[in-house]
Amino acid sequence: MSRVTVFTLGGTISARGGDAARMTGPEVLAALGAPEDVELRDFRRLPSSSLAPEDLAALAAEVNETVAAGSGVVVVQGTDTLEETAFLLDLLCPTERAPVAVTGAMRRPDLPGADGPANLAAALAVAADPACRGLGVLVVLADEIHAARHARKTHTTSVATFASPGAGPLGSVVEGTPRI
């Protein structure tokens, strides 16, 4: 596996029950069973609707530095503005040196069928795979890989909410292996 850096921003994937408290980046990775060799940047702890343009500009700058150093990137955030963040990163962050994947969760960690662990595992696999370089920023949820420029949230509660209308997914993650 190539080196991967995870930027946590908050969102449902880090929610503690029904209150507004958010888990820290280390808590999210530990709760979701992320590999220990992943570098973590506990970037923000906000609902995605609270991310400001300044937050996203700072994120893009750090993602660019990380990719330039040869590390794949996973951005973990809430799904309310995930498609906008992914699109902005796609405009500002080259992916020729390393893949960049954006992911989140539709169900909190304390609910049955929480999708966060599987989405994070799939995004880590994509960010570590050299075959995913140069594809632009990728949205990875429900084992599907979408180009950020086409990805749309199509449902407010379904774990299979992200789609690429008119284009379809670029690929999928099958048993931990990205297939483009």
Score class of each variant (00 low, 15 high):
A57K: 10
V75Y: 06
K153V: 02
T81V: 05
V159D: 09
T24C: 07
D129F: 07
T154L: 08
A61M: 03
V67D: 06
T79K: 06
V173I: 15
G136R: 01
A114W: 03
D19E: 11
K153G: 00
P26H: 09
P35R: 12
S172N: 14
A60G: 05
V126S: 11
R108I: 02
D143A: 14
T156M: 00
T66G: 04
V174D: 12
V4M: 04
V173R: 14
M106E: 03
T8G: 04
E84S: 01
T81L: 06
L111P: 00
R3I: 03
L141V: 12
P35Q: 08
V38Y: 08
G168Q: 13
R45W: 05
M23W: 04
V38T: 13
V126F: 09
G134E: 01
D80R: 09
A147V: 13
R179W: 14
A127F: 06
L141G: 03
P109N: 10
Q77T: 13
D80P: 15
R179E: 15
A167R: 15
A34H: 06
L135F: 07
R179G: 14
V100R: 02
P117W: 08
A167H: 15
E39T: 15
V73L: 05
N64E: 13
D143S: 14
G70H: 14
T79H: 05
R45T: 11
G33W: 07
T161V: 14
T81H: 03
A34L: 05
S2Y: 10
T156F: 00
A167Q: 12
P169A: 13
V126M: 09
A101N: 12
R97E: 15
V100F: 04
S164C: 15
A123L: 03
A131N: 04
L32Y: 03
G10S: 02
S14P: 08
D110V: 04
A128P: 13
T66E: 02
G18Q: 07
F43A: 03
L91M: 12
G25H: 10
P165L: 09
A86L: 09
L29Y: 09
D55R: 02
V126P: 13
D115F: 08
G72D: 14
V102D: 05
V75F: 07
A148Y: 08
R152Y: 02
E175Q: 14
I180A: 15
P130F: 03
G11K: 00
A151D: 08
T79W: 07
A30W: 10
D55P: 05
R179P: 07
A118H: 07
T95N: 11
